[in-house]
Design a protein around this nucleic acid. Structure first.
Lengths: 250, 250
DNA sequence: ACAAAAGTGTTATGATTACACCCATGG
DNA sequence: CCATGGGTGTAATCATAACACTTTTGT
């Protein structure tokens, strides 16, 4: 702790931090045995007080020479090794008592990452990062939350609510899948996030009718059943349609 | 400027402010001549540099002993005299150069007020507050924006986009109307905010079918044509339905 | 040959759109 | 008696929801 260098202001200032809720989706693994899809959040174990040893959202202080969003990108990379992912501002948490040490206001972000192309460094400079399943068992969401420090359970709830709402009217679910995916993987993703079953035929009909999925001509390999067609989301076409008033709706 | 009392920190801290986008809706006035509805924003004229003399969003610094939201409520009251209104967090603006003097991060809110019950103090402690019409003429939105200081034009655009989106799936439009209103006033409100015409019969059918409007039994008075029925929005019932999965959709 | 998931159409119902005239009131 | 906006119904189209069997592949 440098006792010498300090910064002085005429009025007191809250500390400003960012926190990131990082969501990932494990598509059902190939071999048939491996079983089901899982929707997950990335947490890191705190090495310092307060809440030392407990799990928390990755995050940290906003520096003077970076934008708030840049701080979120940086902290995500530093604490989890994750970069180049979908990141969107969620909400700013500014209650007076939310940090027991100091007045701290935190701008929360949420990130969507595809576990195939972004393997997480489980430990970056000795920090401990781990994926936790949401909805693993009935109300394990609640279990996780009792373990989270600060108001991070509230932030996680807020992020989940946002994702559940937004995935229905923006094509952001694709950020959680590999570039090429099957329609069943996409359906399982929606089912996991919305936490309810969807009708297979209606789901496929609706998505294919939008004409935003490109058939890659490739198929799944190494599965013990009929191989599924692989598709890619046509982001270019989506952007063009959106300009003209098209709305992605599931 | 008190030169003596200061606050020092080990690391530099951005200043933290709030800004409020206050929307109001002028229902068409009674007498037939008075003409049309108008959708408006409340701005204040800056008395101090930077951007002295220009128009800006009401706002100010977050104090240590108040939540960020409380700061927004307080600033709104201090600068415009408005209180007890719908207020929701919009977005946090944290670009590095957004304030020319100092690194400042601003949490923006938007408020919806009903001009009947909340007349604005045009001047509170000598500050100058005024309503500006959005969409007054084609692209006068752009005209206002050239006059706004900081990144307030961007904040205003963001608030407008949010309102346009949200009014379609949450019953927040009622915040802009008097408690009792006619269906035509409500329709004009939607038309103004969404900036497109709606079919009268379909609009009424849809709203009445939801069964969330209470017929007050009262009628409009002082109009030079058949008097319209006055309705109130049934907030209690809406909350109950929402719990059970109902979604307000226009 | 069995297990496991892929793929595929039809029908019934409800929602959305488009559209034009008579009514009540005040001036 | 005229001008102004209030109030009303129907028919065509489109979107949604419910539902079951055959196909392909690996073991």
């Amino acid at each position: 702790m440098p006792a010498s260098i300090t910064y002085t202001y005429e009025y007191p200032r809250p500390a400003l931090t960012v926190d990131c809720v990082v969501f990932g989706f494990e598509v059902g693994v190939g071999v048939g045995v491996g079983v089901g899809a899982a929707f997950k959040v990335l947490l890191i174990r705190r090495k310092l007080p307060p809440y030392e040893g407990q799990w928390a959202l990755p995050g940290g202080f906003v520096q003077m020479e970076e934008s708030v969003e840049a701080a979120a990108v940086r902290e995500l990379q530093e604490e989890t090794g994750v970069k180049d992912v979908f990141l969107e501002q969620l909400y700013t948490f500014g209650a007076v008592g939310r940090d027991p040490r100091d007045r701290t206001v935190s701008v929360a972000y949420y990130a969507l990452i595809n576990l195939q192309s972004h393997p997480v460094q489980a430990a970056t400079d000795a920090s401990d990062a781990r994926w936790f399943k949401l909805f693993e068992l009935p109300k394990i969401g609640a279990k996780i939350e009792t373990v989270l420090g600060f108001d991070h359970a509230e932030i996680l709830d807020c992020a989940l609510a946002r994702l559940q709402a937004k995935i229905r009217y923006e094509p952001i679910g694709f950020e959680l899948l590999p570039k090429a995916f099957t329609l069943s993987q996409l359906q399982r993703l929606y089912e996991q996030i919305l936490n309810r079953p969807l009708d297979k035929r209606n789901f496929r009909k609706k998505l294919l009718k939008m004409d935003l999925l490109i058939d890659t001509g490739q198929q799944e390999t190494g599965v013990a059943h009929r191989a599924a067609q692989l598709y890619q989301f046509d982001l270019e076409k989506y952007r063009a349609l959106k300009q003209r008033g098209f709305s992605f709706e599931l």
